[in-house]
Simulated assay, not measured.
Amino acid sequence: MKKEQKPGAHDPLQLLNIWRSYQLKRWKKERRKRLKPGRPTISNQLPQFKEQRSAKTKWRLAVLLVVFTVGTVISLYFMSPSSDIQQLAVSGTKSVPDQQVINASQISLGDNVLWQLMHQKETKQRIQTKLPKIKQVNIKVVQYNQINLSVSEYQTVGYLVREKQYYPILENGQILKTKMTQSLGSSPVYSGFKNDTYLKQGLKLYRDFPKSIQSAVSEIRLTAGNNNPYQIHLYMNDGNEVIGDLRTLATKIKYYPVLVKQMKGKGQLDLEVGAYSKSFETSK
């Protein structure tokens, strides 16, 4: 005898069919959504992927071609006679002759431009060693096969007098071996300095002077009088003289313009210990 189902009970087979029907409808609905026009799919995205990949490949090939072409042109240039130096020039010199700079560089027409660029450090050292007045050197290539040596010079800050010969003193403290019969320009003359230590102090003293006083000094002489090895004597362009101490004159020289105005005529200012003046006429 078949058992009668209770009211509200469901057949398991019927429930399974309902679930399968629901899942089938759901799958068809999602499939229709995926196949809607304009919705990206693997099949309709494939041509786009191919185009992008092709564009990237073309770009890479173009870059490689440009690099290869440029490298080939540069290589051919440096292997050809066109890369040989055809002209050599010097700029920036003031007192050093251009030909001396060229000779010191040891660069010759016909030398390879690339070789000179690779060894420019050695070239700079040669120039500065043979010409101490050269402060800086820059090697530039102009129009592919021309070399320009752009230099700057140390400023001459004074002249050291020894045995009636004048030796230029550079701003870096170096004394050139070039002998001169007289000083040039407005740089002061340093005399009586037989010791390099005192000379360095004298150079520093002058650097510490105000610009207006620097232009007024004609000669700085180490006199070492009154049992003071640091005593110096300044000869001014206006005809006056100043006595002072290497160690203290830098702070006292600022009173020079005021003291000169108080003097009657040309005279001597003594700033070694105190600060007083006397005219040349009175001392006669």
Rank of each mutant, 00 (worst) to 15 (best):
S152E: 08
K179A: 11
E171K: 10
S152P: 00
I169Q: 03
V151G: 01
S152K: 08
P168D: 09
R162V: 07
Q136M: 11
E171T: 05
I134F: 07
S152W: 00
Y144C: 06
V157I: 15
E171L: 03
E171P: 03
L170R: 00
N172A: 04
L131E: 02
L176G: 07
Q165K: 15
K133S: 13
G173H: 05
K133M: 15
K124D: 06
V161I: 07
E171Y: 03
V161F: 10
L170S: 04
I139T: 09
K177D: 15
K133Y: 12
Q155N: 15
Q174G: 11
Q143W: 14
Q165S: 14
V141Q: 11
P168A: 06
K124F: 10
K177I: 11
Q125C: 08
K135G: 01
Q155F: 11
Q165N: 15
T129Q: 14
Q136D: 11
V137Q: 00
T178N: 10
I175E: 01
P168V: 02
V151Y: 01
K140D: 13
I147Y: 10
I127D: 01
Q155D: 15
K164C: 02
K124E: 12
N145W: 04
Q174K: 14
K133N: 10
K130I: 09
Q165W: 15
N138R: 12
Y159P: 09
Q174P: 06
Q155P: 05
L160E: 01
Y154H: 09
R162Y: 09
T156W: 06
K135V: 10
